[in-house]
């Protein structure tokens, strides 16, 4: 176990471009590495543009380990797992953290079995235990009702996936320098029994809900699917994306990619504005890191008001149209003065 040292974050690229989750992981990884007094490495699989690799250094990595075989261009479980297992064996990091993304949540359990390591899913907090230097991994459990802290005292590496948007991306420091280490991977490891035949992009709106600065969401209080028109209109005015509670998704009013919450997406926008959403613990699990939460609900007891910075107890069918009118008026007035 003593042979294992150093912190790794598993950076992600899509179509050659480094994804934001990588920078969020650098925030986490930097803090852990500094507490332990060890180097922080970002590992990235697949061909990635050079500017992206440098950015990983500027945002906190001491080293970037790159396996840029073309077979790794897109996520495929077997080549990714075998490559990672090979890298882990060669470099022996004590901690590996990855994004709780569709690829991270697939790769990490495969790797954990292969390396006989403990793995904690979907963490919202990571820390180092004082006396032992063990990784303390905190995550919501039982439908978000409790927070559990977990460790893997007797196994290395210690592995965790981290909820996207549960922390801010690390800022870039242009003065930072670090090493780029390119690894050659044995072609045997790159074989795959899964073939990627194609890709259909989701509608842009659903795809960017996690990246959006503003999310306007609706729930069962909208009464029927057509009334999402109000939510869409408000989102368009504020330049935001559209979210929904599970109840609204289950009723077929809007697609699953828009679902916010424990079994949907975590969002962390500057503004989360929702109407007709009760604020179940599972829904709150997906919005807690939002900077501002605004709620409209006819029930003064609705739980959503416990987390709202500003709330209106009222009928959304009165509040939203008026709000839309007033924002339009304001925007028109501002446009007129410039």
């Amino acid at each position: 176990m003593q042979d294992y040292s150093g912190v790794w974050i598993l950076a992600e690229q899509r179509h050659g471009t480094v994804q934001t989750i990588s920078y969020e992981l650098l925030t986490r990884g930097r803090a852990l590495a500094d507490t332990l007094g060890v180097p922080l490495a970002a590992v990235i699989l697949g061909p990635t543009d050079d500017a992206g690799l440098d950015e990983l250094i500027r945002r906190g990595a001491d080293r970037v380990i790159i396996a840029d075989a073309p077979e790794l261009a897109e996520f495929l479980p077997e080549p990714y797992t075998r490559t990672m297992a090979h890298l882990v064996k060669t470099h022996q990091p004590e901690i590996i953290i990855a994004g709780a993304t569709s690829s991270g949540r697939t790769l990490m359990p495969l790797l954990a079995i292969t390396c006989h390591a403990g793995l904690t899913a979907d963490c919202t907090g990571l820390d180092i235990e004082d006396e032992t230097g063990n990784l303390l991994q905190t995550r919501p459990a039982i439908g978000g009702n409790i927070m559990a802290t977990i460790k893997s005292p007797a196994h290395r590496p210690q592995m965790a996936t981290v909820r996207p948007k549960s922390t801010r991306p690390a800022p870039a420091d242009p003065a930072r320098t670090g090493a780029l280490i390119r690894e050659t991977i044995d072609p045997e490891l790159l074989k795959s029994r899964v073939k990627r035949l194609g890709f259909t992009p989701a509608d842009a709106d659903a795809a960017n809900i996690q990246e959006a600065e503003v999310v306007v969401a609706g729930g069962r209080g909208l009464k029927k699917g057509d009334n999402f028109g109000l939510i869409n209109a408000l989102a368009a005015l504020l330049g935001g994306a559209v979210g929904a509670s599970r109840d609204a998704v289950d009723r077929g009013w809007i697609g699953y990619p828009h679902q916010v919450g424990l079994s949907g997406k975590t969002v962390s926008p500057k503004l989360y504005l929702c109407a007709g959403v009760s604020g179940s613990i599972q829904h709150l699990a997906g919005i807690k890191t939002s900077e501002n939460i605004i709620a409209v609900n006819s029930n003064p007891e609705a739980q959503i008001f416990q987390v709202a910075n500003y709330g209106i107890v009222g009928d959304l069918f009165e509040v939203l149209p008026l709000l839309i009118d007033k924002i339009k008026a304001k925007q028109a007035a501002t446009a007129a003065t410039v």
Partner: peptide
């Protein structure tokens, strides 16, 4: 390999500004 070391109940509360829009005047103001 993993061990649960601690469990706690999260408290999510913000002391927000909550308005009531019961009548048209309140609605307008809110």
């Amino acid at each position: 390999p993993t061990r649960v070391v601690k469990i706690n109940t999260p408290k999510v509360t913000r002391s927000g500004d909550i308005r009531t829009a019961g009548d048209p005047a309140e609605l307008e103001a809110a």
